[in-house]
Design a protein around this nucleic acid. Structure first.
Lengths: 217, 217
DNA sequence: TAATAAATCAAACGTTTGTTTGATTTTACT
DNA sequence: AGTAAAATCAAACAAACGTTTGATTTATTA
């Protein structure tokens, strides 16, 4: 039985600072002196607590991966919801999760772009997270197909790619989105609210048209 | 009148090697000694030809941006095509472009993730590329709406995000896609062909359901 | 062919990198 | 209070970094 590592307050503080800096400048682009300075600690504390810079980002992934677990299971196993309702909740849950952890998901996207297995520990974690999400969507779609609500010829992989790809695209290009839609007068919080609502409507409409026999209203 | 810089064969060779390495390990993660070694040249040649490492990646963006220009205009201005046909061609064109320049688009995605304006030259180029693509889709949608073929309540920004986000997601997670769909026996070339066809069908189906009044067959 | 310019090279430059050291302070426990 | 462990620090470490230098070779031109 593998026990999850526990981190004290100081370690978590370092992890949080590292998360923000990695998101902004990338792993290679961020020095441990940057992190130490922002976290107001001595440079040697990072090696002292984590062993190395590499182990630090692995610790970050461990913490965030554990946080991200479960949640999906509660949606799927809810007997009171129709398959389409479950899909809708899954969409909103994905939007909330990705928009709420923009720094971490920025780092995840960067790591996905690194084709080489420089960091097999992290690659494994990303694979597991993606597999879990994919399995969740698959089980909901299958349930809808068995109940006759959903079409049979649904490409779940691509549907999953559209869900997460669209959200990622909106998040990574949000300043562009803001300019194009003349939303530069809004505060960041207000803008994110608008973005979430628009994304939710858009993705639900796509999923409805793609998986059900119904048409868009 | 700003003239596009011209690069000799040696410079282009360096740019190509740099493109491959930047895509694999990121800009900060790639040293000019890596590039020099792979390109089989002396380290000083990079400063000699480009001035600096920073200018090298700017040169890469200049070359690839110039290549990417036009093409869109020929689709839009073709009078013989219906709006939906134009959308379909735009989709296939986007798939072809992103899948055919995976290294460069990997780098573009990385640069988009770097929030800070460490490289305003590159940020500007990315903005222009995105703006051009967005304008292209917008003009086609508007034409379809004027002709009464397309719905009025179409969110073009999000539609654009779905188009490019889905393709990017598929490309960046293609090894995952391969495992999940049991396509590991295929060669890379065969796999990419399958991927392109699936993507094309998927995205066209989504666009048809989202912008037209017709239903999916 | 002689003179000039361009290209290439090994070597060195000064920084910055991640990490370690060893002394010192703070905390925890009996 | 006294001792052991944990935490913190400035300093040093070797390695890697991007860039420059100055000599040497190759190519061009007259």
């Amino acid at each position: 039985m593998i026990r999850a590592m526990e981190y004290n307050a100081k370690q978590l503080q370092i992890i949080e600072v590292a998360e923000r800096l990695f998101a902004g400048k990338g792993f290679s682009g961020t020095s441990i002196r940057d992190i130490a300075h922002e976290a107001d600690i001595n440079v040697s504390m990072i090696s002292y607590y984590f062993g190395s810079k590499e182990k630090l980002i692995e610790a970050l992934f461990e913490v965030r991966s554990v946080e991200s677990a479960a949640r999906l299971e509660t949606i799927i196993s809810n007997e009171d919801l129709s398959p389409l309702q479950k899909v809708y909740i899954l969409i909103d849950s994905a939007i909330e999760k990705l928009m709420g952890n923009q720094c971490f998901h920025n780092i995840m996207l960067r790591e996905q772009l690194s084709g080489d297995d420089r960091t097999p520990v992290i690659s494994d974690r990303i694979f597991q997270l993606k597999y879990k999400n994919w399995k969740g969507l698959e089980s909901i779609i299958h349930e809808g197909q068995q109940k006759g609500h959903f079409r049979e010829n649904v490409d779940i992989s691509l549907l999953s790619a559209t869900l997460y790809g669209t959200i990622n695209q909106v998040i990574t290009t949000q300043s562009f989105f803001r300019k194009i839609n003349n939303l530069e007068h809004l505060s960041q919080a207000e803008f994110e609210k608008v973005l979430k609502r628009k994304l939710s409507i858009h993705l639900k409409s796509i999923f409805k048209a793609t998986v059900t026999y119904e048409t868009i209203e």
